[in-house]
Write a protein that binds this DNA or RNA. Structure first.
Length: 482
RNA sequence: GGGGCUGUGGUCUAGCCUGGUAUGAUUUGAGGUUUGGGACUUCACGACCCCGGUUCAAAUCCGGGCAGCCCCA
């Protein structure tokens, strides 16, 4: 018997913040010791998860007609300044390079609209060029003035930004809807992160957009975290970059632009927080860098076990299952704890006993059950178990998410619900600019952020605005926020 | 943006109040015994965040900086 140790100093339910810091370190997701505020080193385990998420997202984008490009990380000041609300929105957070080009300042991209549109001005000439749908995998830089939190709010983050151009507003709006569908299909269905698509109030849209739809998820401490957002870019922006095309009737027109920005580092924060438990990470089968770890029990004449382990490894790899054999000299118990911390969905235990019976023990990370599986059709079984595993994580996350959304009728119940870490929904006067005053009240007095109105369903308001008492026109959602 | 806490081998930690030889564990490397839920053992390597001040003497006291964490906006 070894010494009794607890995996974590603090449990997830007791103190989420500390649990989060600890799991990032113990599961070797990031290293915080780089020493520059808001910048973290993403370690191999974290990088591999992010890479898997990137690949899934990119393949979804290609399936919907997007092409990849790679744009410079540097944006000249004159491009950056072309659209005034965009400048106003981002300028305070821009990292300017010390090295100039002539007299011109150079910015490290906080986002790449002003890089893409510079080229769209050249690339888009005719309606035949449309739609133009291009994305890039990129890191972007924003000098956050608020408190930074690893992966949740950093000064550098890793995302995909897709910049699409269409001949008509109708097409562009359809793209915005498609973006929401993609968030649903990828982030929710595959990564298991539930969210609400929220149309942002006018005062909270992307700088330079006509409107913005964000995907709001929630962390276990009850704080709302914005996940991918999609924007219908204003015509003002297009004109600033003089992007235009000739239509079928030889008439000059301005295209309609959209952009979509799923942030892998931030989604990873949600994945860790939503699924993880007091034994470490719990990674969805689909995005776990190692899907199956094999822990062999070798005895003196273990040649047969060795051969069987090699065969299993080959079989699983042949079926495109990411498998790793733990041949380190550590004792089995230590290996078990290690791979549980890393969030590997399945562990296969195999030794002499298993050779005789023809069945291996499969340990399942989320439920911590052990089951017996026949060696003959192991790959098949793992695939089935993997699918079940992911749908189990999804269902659990959904249940928890649903329970966190509360209908409120008055300020007192809103306050109470927020204190319990819930998202509140209530009747509200307006999400146009005339509602800004009530939103300010929500921020100041109720200490919550107005998320907006549902973008996926229509919710009819009735009665009065809970804040000002005037006629209500919308149902809004609000929550504590990062 | 405001407030609080903290910074000691790779990691965790004692020492700090009351200035004087830096504690323990773990990790890492080498060796031996081990291996079905965090093994044991021997040896070795390894640290006071940075800059300044006070002092015969600073991990310790003072000032500033940087970084991390927590709470609030």
């Amino acid at each position: 018997m070894g010494k009794k140790k607890t995996t974590f100093n603090i449990s997830k339910s007791e103190n989420f913040s500390e649990w989060y810091s600890e799991i990032l370190n113990k599961a070797e997701i990031v290293d915080l010791r780089y020493g520059v505020k808001g910048f973290v080193v993403i370690r191999p385990w974290g990088a591999r998860i992010i890479d898997k998420m990137y690949k899934i997202y990119e393949s979804a984008l290609r399936c919907t007609g997007h092409e990849a490009a790679i744009f410079p990380a540097v944006i000249p000041e004159k491009n950056f300044k072309r659209e005034s609300s965009h400048v106003d929105g981002f300028a305070p957070e821009v990292f300017w390079l010390d090295k100039k080009q002539g007299d011109e300042k150079l910015a490290l991209r906080p986002t790449s609209e002003t890089a893409f549109y510079e080229m769209y001005n050249l690339w888009i000439r005719s309606y035949r060029d449309l739609p133009m749908k291009i994305y890039q995998r990129a890191n972007v830089f924003r000098n956050e003035t608020k408190a930074t939190r690893p992966l949740i709010r950093s000064r550098e983050f890793h995302w995909i930004e897709s910049h699409d151009a269409f001949a008509t507003k109708k097409d562009a709006e359809a793209q915005v809807q498609d973006d929401i569908v993609m968030t649903e299909e990828v982030m929710h269905k595959i990564f298991g992160v539930p969210f609400l698509p929220m149309k942002r109030p006018q005062w909270d849209k992307f700088p330079g957009a006509e409107y913005t739809i964000g995907s709001d998820s929630i962390l276990p401490d009850g704080k709302v975290i914005q996940q991918p957002s999609t924007h219908l870019i204003s015509q003002h922006f297009v004109k600033a970059f003089d992007v235009k095309f000739v239509d079928e009737r030889e008439k000059e027109k301005t295209p309609w632009l959209t952009c979509y920005g799923p942030c892998m580092s931030r989604i990873l924060a949600s994945v860790i927080s939503v699924h993880g438990d007091d034994n470490g990470l719990v990674l969805p089968y689909t995005i776990s860098p190692v899907q199956v770890v094999v822990v062999p029990f070798y005895s003196e004449e273990s040649k047969k076990v060795r051969e069987m382990v090699e065969k299993i490894q080959k079989d699983l790899l042949g079926e495109h299952i990411d498998v790793r054999v733990d041949n380190s000299g550590k004792r089995p118990g230590e290996k078990f704890f290690h791979w549980e911390m890393k969030g590997v969905p399945f562990r296969i235990e195999i030794g002499e006993k298993e050779l005789e019976s023809g069945e291996v023990i499969v340990f399942i990370r989320d439920t911590r059950e052990k089951i017996s599986v026949r060696i003959d059709d192991l790959a098949e079984s793992i695939k089935n178990l993997g699918a079940e595993y992911d749908s189990r994580l999804l269902a659990r996350a959904d249940d928890s998410f649903k329970s966190k959304i509360v209908d409120c009728k008055d300020k007192v119940s809103i306050k109470k619900a927020l204190k319990l870490g819930k998202i509140v929904k209530f009747s509200f006067c307006s999400v146009e600019n005339d509602g800004a005053k009530c939103a300010e009240f929500v921020e100041k007095e109720l200490e919550a952020r107005v998320m907006g109105i549902r973008a996926d369903i229509e919710e009819k308001a009735s009665g009065k605005c809970v804040i000002c008492g005037e006629k209500s026109n919308v149902i809004i959602y609000a929550g504590k926020s990062y």
